[in-house]
Design a protein around this nucleic acid. Structure first.
Lengths: 228, 228
DNA sequence: CAACAGATTTTGGTATACCAAATCGATGAT
DNA sequence: ATCATCGATTTGGTATACCAAAATCTGTTG
């Protein structure tokens, strides 16, 4: 059987385009046109669209083309609140279930970020950051939790990305990560929850800033329909 | 346009069959056969399968028929842990954002359950219970949270259902619900988190019991493939 | 009798064709 | 000039046919 991909492949490509901003919010994603453009049939394109809709990146409207979701300040705040709760739970469970290797791995990410944080590309730093948070969820050894956490992290990817590339004080980032790992190493649930809380509250503030900026400048392009 | 349904309709039907136990864990869901059986084409059946797979009710395997997920004790415990965290967050946020009408609505559900709990059908009680927990999530006024919470509640539907119909002491259920609403009315986040914690810990224990029972009696029907 | 090779069957993946609803625009009546 | 109506077009939904990979069955061979 064809290694079972195409739809996922298309979904990945579209997701990347959306998150990177190539397909800005409000863009119509017509399954017919897009499929033709990529040289595939409507079937896998259709499935890809459903995948992204489930992830919240596209909105399906009856009898209208799917549209790239406009990130809304309120919604992002809501999602961030859930993300924080999930990550606090992850860290708490990690205190109990993480292996020493898990914690060493987290430590290594922190060290790598510290080592490179003054000369590396913002995107690299961002990706290490993403890996760090994913690893915390993984360290909970709760598959459902890790999966759900990943889903929220992905949904906030674009806002986080925009927030990260302009982040002013990376020292804060590193030190906060260090605090988290340290509390984790002490297996102190309360401390680690607190550290996560502090860290992600800052993230939430950054995200809020980014969205307000994008909303104001880019305008509420709710009506225009550039083709996808 | 056809009011946009069939696939969802099929998904709903399959979901119902799975949760009610008509399609027990391990059952193969062949898209070809099932589609023919329902008199529809493979296309909507395919989409329905994807929907249920996303919800965790079906497992997709490369080049093999999708199979009804076997609820695994570990996995259910993991999911319950997440559910508890989400509901505690819901209740906490509800302290801040719930309207008085929201709380009155919750109170009404508790009262209704109390009024009927000694003569109503277990299934009715169960459905009121489901509504109660859904309403708590809704009272958070955080759409993402409510949606995610609903997803986990659904995934645990079958286990919760089996636990509910044999629940021994319903008084406990009512009194715990009452505690939750009361704390909510006082807008006391700590108290409400505690009340939720107590209530759902009991639920977790019930679920564990049910799964152990099902796993032991029903056997690990991992190999057999009754058609769907 | 066991093990391997090839054919056959079964599976999901993809492409394509057709349908119906909904939208949008043109045209004609008032 | 305006508004209503009708039709062409665009949309997604569905059915069907075909394809390739994987699993399975089978017959042969060591």
């Amino acid at each position: 059987m064809p290694q079972k991909i195409l739809a996922d492949q298309i979904a990945n490509e579209l997701r990347r385009d959306i998150l990177r901003g190539k397909l800005p919010p409000g863009t119509f994603v017509k399954e017919r046109d897009n499929a033709a453009e990529l040289g595939v049939s409507r079937t896998p394109m259709r499935e890809a669209i459903r995948i992204l809709a489930k992830e919240g990146l596209l909105q399906l409207r009856a009898s209208r083309s799917p549209v790239v979701t406009q990130l809304d300040a309120r919604e992002a705040a809501d999602q961030t609140a859930v993300l924080i709760a999930l990550e606090k739970l992850s860290a708490e469970l990690a205190c109990e279930h993480a292996t020493d290797a898990d914690i060493d791995g987290l430590q290594a990410m922190v060290d790598e970020m510290a080592r490179r944080f003054d000369r590396a590309d913002p995107v690299d730093i961002f990706e290490i950051d993403m890996g760090f948070h994913t690893a915390i969820a993984a360290a909970s050894h709760n598959a459902s939790l890790a999966e759900t956490h990943r889903s929220f992290l992905e949904r906030l990817w674009r806002a986080r990305y925009l927030a990260a590339v302009q982040r002013r004080n990376r020292e804060r980032l590193v030190s906060q990560h260090r605090d988290i790992v340290e509390a984790l190493r002490r297996r102190d649930p309360e401390a680690v929850r607190g550290a996560i809380e502090i860290h992600l509250r800052d993230l939430a503030a950054d995200i809020r800033r980014v969205i307000e900026r994008e909303t104001h400048s880019g305008g509420v392009n709710g009506r225009n329909g550039r083709e996808s």
